[in-house]
Design a protein around this nucleic acid. Structure first.
Lengths: 343, 343
DNA sequence: CTGAAAGCGCTTACAG
DNA sequence: CTGAAAGCGCTTACAG
């Protein structure tokens, strides 16, 4: 199939009997065009199936009407194992972009990559959306560099005082509190926590502290001996639960910092012949689609990914328009399922 | 934060004491540059943190070094319910793009959208990757229009004789055969099929026929009375299984055309008090991450999404280079789990 | 309301 | 090996 020669605004101008500038005005919706002229131009556009060349337009206006979504994970996952939680945000992000007339570039990054410098300097994108779990202290410096350069970005993550740039995140502390109250109300007293609980992983840490705060109200507390580090993957959850069991300390509930960790833990507990939820109640965080199909179905904390995605895009676009934008926290909702004893 | 004024190749030229053309030569890796000159230019590039403006470059070369991934689903899913099977291909597609130095635009489309005309005409992308289930006869016309226009594209889907454009797909017929042989070898004789089995959904149809072919070798056959239409979603699978049960015909196995359908069917069977796998064996297709966590874990057909994604990108890039490209079929592998009686 | 003209930042023949 | 120049296809002040 031979490629057609490209139709330009000059071709439209000839056909409609106007100047090329007028064609451009019609296509950009300028009010400075006579209604008749507009009609003739629009007819020519349709007849020749003309589309504005985005590169020429962007070069001239110095704006690409494109956002870049950087998904990063640490440690490196294999290709097909992107955290389903972030994938479920992808849909609402693309739709929010489409509604605003923006395109979306998607890229998977390692934390170690040079992602802070590329998309804006090359003019490929007007702003960045950063999504992913990872060691916060390790990438905080990169966020500062982004701010320093004047790059516009939003990230999904913990909302912390004094942090560089704009963040949108779930109310992790409250989410943890809901889990703590729920488990305590079931009579659970010794709650293990699987996931890093330090300022390296502030989202996980907030979930931990929220749970601890709920226990404190009942004169209980989290036990450091029942906390095991884990990154957000099924394998890490499986390993962490085995470590926990090997310690031999008594526990009657497991709060996993994410659903992937919880699902791995569920497998390890089953392998060890532990009765869930009879002897041990289990809760996760994220409400990924898989959580409903875990064995038993997983109690977890729902975050509204649809609203989150929309908010990320809108707050980035507001920055691009030059508006002042604040970090925002979204509500967390408890979803009780069989792993903590619901039917 | 004030935005820096843009660094251009002219700034680099001044700093390095060469012409702007030479800067461009260095950055495009031209061999026509003296080693010393190259060093000076590279130093200036580093010092000013210069990046080539992609729009200017693309406008000049008439190529965007960008591919567009169009994910479409029919009927409309809600935001967060993109088929996990396609999501798992996203990772390998983005990585294959990155390796080739291409960017990837991602967009979700309705089948009814005007996706056939946009990305190439606007120069936003050099080619299209089409991903999604949907009524083949309904979008076949759009594929023909793409070919007609000379748009370069690859799609994931059934590989059919005489179809427009280039397709990469799994060997659905063989996959169906593997399922048929497996179920028959377990002594199952009356195999229900959940999913559209017509040329509107050629992938599902091939799976159906493959299963039928396997049964034929044993003097058995699929029974049209045990086939119920369903699109690829959990809800549709649930509804289809209920319809099947309501018919009151005996069956001892269910072959669902996709894992999402199977997972919905599993739920309906459990609600109806049916014993899986005791009385009814169940198998799906796709091996989405959730399949391992279904209750019971789902027997299914694995398609190598990692290789599929890579192949899609490579075959599109080959077309862009002007090479002749053939449609290709990838192998299918049976994964036996508890839903058909494995431990 | 419309047109002629400049210019966005590159790449690449052309000439030397 | 290097530079001067044209030109990719737009948008938008400027002049009328």
């Amino acid at each position: 199939m031979a490629r057609r020669s490209k139709v330009t605004s000059i071709d439209i101008a000839h056909r409609a009997g106007v100047s090329q500038a007028t064609v451009s005005r019609v296509l950009s919706g300028s009010p400075l065009v006579n209604a008749d002229t507009r009609k003739r131009v629009e007819a020519a556009v349709r007849e020749l199936n003309y589309k504005v060349d985005r590169h020429a337009s962007s070069l001239r206006t110095q704006s690409s009407r494109t956002l870049a979504l950087l998904l990063f994970e640490d440690p490196t996952p294999d290709d097909s194992h992107i955290n389903p939680f972030f994938l479920s945000m992808l849909g609402s992000i693309t739709r929010a972009c489409a509604r605003a007339g923006y395109d979306l570039l998607v890229s998977f990054q390692q934390l170690s990559d040079d992602w802070h410098a590329d998309y804006e300097d090359t003019m490929k994108a007007d702003g960045l959306i950063l999504l992913g779990y990872g060691d916060y202290l390790a990438y905080r410096g990169k966020l500062e560099a982004l701010v320093e350069q004047g790059t516009r970005f939003v990230r999904w993550g913990a909302v912390l005082p004094g942090q560089p740039g704009v963040s949108i995140g779930c109310d992790n502390h409250h989410g943890g509190q809901l889990v703590g109250e729920h488990l305590a109300s079931l009579g659970r007293r010794r709650i293990a926590f699987l996931g890093d609980a330090s300022s390296h992983y502030p989202e996980f840490f907030d979930r931990y502290r929220g749970c601890d705060a709920a226990l404190a109200k009942r004169g209980l507390a989290m036990d450091a001996g029942l906390q095991v580090d884990a990154v957000s993957s099924e394998e890490a959850g499986h390993a962490a639960a085995r470590t926990l069991l090997a310690r031999g300390l008594p526990f009657d509930a497991v709060f996993a910092a994410s659903d992937l960790i919880a699902i791995g833990a569920l497998r390890a507990l089953a392998e060890a012949g532990q009765d869930v939820p009879g002897r041990i109640a289990v809760a996760g965080f994220d409400d990924i689609p898989m959580a409903r199909f875990a064995q038993p179905a997983l109690t977890t904390v729902y975050q509204d990914t649809s609203r989150a995605g929309t908010l990320l895009v809108e707050s980035l676009l507001a920055q691009i328009r030059g508006e002042a934008v604040e970090s925002t926290t979204l509500p967390a909702t408890l979803v009780v399922r069989r792993s903590s004893g619901a039917d």
